[in-house]
Design a protein around this nucleic acid. Sequence first.
DNA 1: CGGACTTCGTTACAGTTTTCACAATCTAAT
DNA 2: ATTAGATTGTGAAAACTGTAACGAAGTCCG
Lengths: 219, 219
Amino acid sequence: MKTVTKSAVRQPPRDIPLDTIRRLSICLRALNRLKERGIATVNSVELAEPLNFSSEQLRKDLSYFGRFGKSGVGYDVGQLSGKIHSILGTDKVWNVAVLGAGELGTALLGYSGFEDFNLRVCAALDNDPRKIGKTINGVRVSAIAGLSDIVRRNEIKAAILTVTKTAAQEVAQKAVACGIKAVLNFAPVTLNLPKGVHVSNMDVSCELETLVCRLANRN
Amino acid sequence: MKTVTKSAVRQPPRDIPLDTIRRLSICLRALNRLKERGIATVNSVELAEPLNFSSEQLRKDLSYFGRFGKSGVGYDVGQLSGKIHSILGTDKVWNVAVLGAGELGTALLGYSGFEDFNLRVCAALDNDPRKIGKTINGVRVSAIAGLSDIVRRNEIKAAILTVTKTAAQEVAQKAVACGIKAVLNFAPVTLNLPKGVHVSNMDVSCELETLVCRLANRN
DNA sequence: CGGACTTCGTTACAGTTTTCACAATCTAAT
DNA sequence: ATTAGATTGTGAAAACTGTAACGAAGTCCG
């Protein structure tokens, strides 16, 4: 007996552009807002335009993974949301650790953007004895020495790095040694980590700088 | 009499890729670290490789703006730093406002990454009466109602938006009405602002999500 | 039931960015 | 002064990404 799932999420044929993933993430968030408002159907124009990209682009992005819409109608909000969750791998919860419980780490422990993606910040680590043991937004701060255990117990694969720029490389290396496979780096330094570890930089000053650059060149 | 400035920063011939600007920003930061260590000369390989991009790429990026190196030698650290400052428009100080003095805004008021780019956070605004009047990291928190004055007095053109996602659109619009021309948005929503206003999104959850996606697809 | 209308998915095209290869330039040493 | 070695700057090729156009599929209404 053959089991055929209609319009399953297709295994992508080749490398997917990073921006495609970003746009689909943004879409997922928008779909959640639509769901909250009780809207059941949406077409590619209604979905894409408020997000500042074109409907063609959205359809193309989706077409890497399968066929999810209905001609003449559009997309079922709940269904498309589910499909994008599968595509992004967030049909299950991902636990994440915050490394560095300073102002920025604290801010992220209270950040309201993670729910849309089934991401859960479930651990905070710091080396400052005054912080260890405190509870911030329901998460207890542990010493970095305990990272290995925490990673194992919670099956954590990704960490957000919010320590100072001087500590960043060292803490990141330690995290990788504990089994962390992906790092979202907020420190204004370039990390050098083993191949196979995914790094993404949230470089505030650099990004602000590109804005200023555009202003300086009046365009 | 003709005044010829040797190897001036050339007016870029056409649109410069955004990533070029990003890479040059990163380079500028690295050059500052080299300067601190008293290193006077660097070649494109030594500069680019620790930053995880290729020397060819760096040379190409620079070539949009002029010729700054010496064949057989490399680049003078101090001089190249100055040139990149001109390119990026940060040869003078840029004042920036933080909109939203919550945890995230507070974190940015103490952020150590701005010095490299001559960016100065000189104002913090919030609508919470408990915060107004307080001083965070040397910056006094003002009511958002006072934004217009502050923008004018400090010639602020760019703002960092750190308010909640529900307030983001409204506050951003107000900021634009006060003369803000560029917004670095931390709220997990897509802003809709008039054409001509530059927006850049620091989307923590979306970026973490792309990392998780790569993990989920084991590549 | 049929024709007008809507919207999707895909293929072909155009534009952009990166990579590659090499001539030109400079230094240093003999 | 000449040669060997190093490194830059750039044009041409390749790879990648986004845009546009259109056939196919589905809906709605008379």
